[in-house]
Design a protein around this nucleic acid. Structure first.
Lengths: 287, 287
DNA sequence: CAGTGGTCTAGACCACTGG
DNA sequence: CAGTGGTCTAGACCACTGC
């Protein structure tokens, strides 16, 4: 409970501070100063030099999430409990949770509690998949059929290593699969996963598990994908890709290159998808 | 100041309510009940039946924005002023503004005020354009060169009418232009605009104006684009498109179909872009 | 220095959920 | 009914901007 130095003696139990006499919880005292005293003489002008309390609380909650103190799908302590634990007001905890909920790391449910977000029970499956049928209703086509083509262990190429923040030659897993809608193969995906966190993943796991792959990653490997970036291009398929997607060589396809990140912006997956867009489209909201 | 019925007599000046005696500002009294008394006997079970005060304030601010009480780029009244005007606490106004800022309708600037968002001064131009050079730095290529190919008045096809919520045959403007980066034509766009709001738009306007087209729409026609939806597909260009983009017939291109909306979800533009993705890519953040 | 948005607290009450 | 998140207020103080 020493995340803020002044906190230790300022908030000791019995005292109840009126707003006027409230200790200077916000003074321009960045946490960095507390944690790394005075060694680095650099960055005197560029330091943010101010971190609101609720940001610090947000950081602490993030740490607990990352450490697995609360698992995906579970509820976290109530706002009041957290306020007590961190020795701040409920409002401050609330603001921290607000931001985490906006980032989709937590989900609030009035009357029930606040829960760790998960890719499993998400009302719509495939939270990161933006391909929709042209009629717009993803339910109309039923669940996707999935076929694992391949799952093998190999050494990271320079490109894969860069994307996953590994060294060239480090062990990675490569998965290839096809998703079909209404019997029509529509998505061909190649995935690369770091060998360490995903040690032991086999095509059997992937075949047996029903539900989003990211949910399997959560439950079986404790890796929770938090956000992702995609680069989209139009390409023509090669021969093998034509076979798997059952299209002719001249058919233009969407190439979707995704890097997915877990907590702390650590990249945990490189994925390259080829999407047929004759009956589907990639949908995006701009605001 | 009669946006909430109970407000009229409950908040009259002199009285200062303690939390305990605060009038029931939040009672389960949807605004709808005030505005449409009891005529429609429907929707007894499906009514949201509860609208928080700050949502009502948000609606009022939205109305003022829509009515043009504050123009893009201008500052709106301070939170305290708005609180006085609406007879609520500053915190409630704050929460309303928070949401509007999250929707990018307003921009807060500490120490200066809250401003109406605009497409003009946006630090990065082209807020809605997600095409980036493959090196990732949009500044490295300098400003886009723009060439208006065509701008003409015609009657809406069924498809255009549907997208713009018009009737087939209504007057629309069609614009075609090419954007080039570092001398390479990269984007070919066709736009359709409703004839009414954009009466008088000519290719001269478009050529003379320097800055994003959406900024021109704001200043010259009072139409502010607030959000947009895009459908992305991979396509092959026809002959004319090949000419304009200087590519060979077999080159796969990104087709980006956008409908842009102003306040109240009113569609105000249909745009179809063809993007070259040999040196650029469409970038998207998932979270 | 005054004015603005930003943070924090404390407390009251409301809406929703489930036992 | 108790417990949870959601709304609202009032007031104090901080950080930032510009005169």
């Amino acid at each position: 409970m020493s995340y803020i130095r002044y906190d230790v003696d300022a908030f000791t139990p019995p005292v109840r501070h009126s707003p006027a006499t409230r200790p200077a919880a916000l003074m321009n005292t960045p946490i960095a100063f507390v944690e790394q005293p005075a060694s680095l003489a650099e960055a005197p002008a560029s330091t943010p030099a101010f971190s609101p309390l609720y940001q610090q609380i947000k950081g602490l909650i993030l740490q607990s999430l990352q450490a697995g103190e609360w698992k995906p799908g579970e509820s976290i302590p109530s706002e009041i409990d957290l306020a007590t634990r961190f020795k701040v007001s409920q409002g401050t905890v609330r603001k921290a949770i607000d931001e985490l909920a906006a980032d989709h790391l937590l989900v609030r449910r009035q009357g029930k509690g606040t829960f760790v977000a998960t890719h499993a029970e998400h009302h719509v499956q495939y939270r990161f998949l933006k391909l929709l049928p042209d009629n717009g209703d993803p339910n109309s086509e039923g669940p996707a059929q999935r076929e694992i083509i391949d799952c093998k262990r190999l050494r990271a190429s320079a490109e894969v290593a860069r994307a996953l923040a590994l060294r060239s030659g480090d062990a990675v897993l490569q998965v290839r699969r096809v998703l079909s809608f209404a019997g029509t193969p529509t998505i061909l995906e190649d995935l690369w996963l770091p060998g360490g966190p995903f040690k032991g993943l086999t095509s059997d796991h992937l075949n047996e598990y029903h539900g989003p792959m990211y949910a399997l990653f959560e439950t079986r490997f404790g890796v929770r994908m938090v956000r992702a970036e995609e680069k989209i291009r139009a390409v023509l398929p090669d021969e093998r890709q034509c076979q798997l997607l059952q299209v002719t060589p001249g058919t233009p396809l969407l190439s979707v290159e995704r890097v997915a990140y877990t907590y702390n912006d650590a990249p945990m997956e490189l994925r390259r998808g080829l999407y047929r867009t004759d009956t589907h489209h990639y949908h995006n909201q701009l605001s």
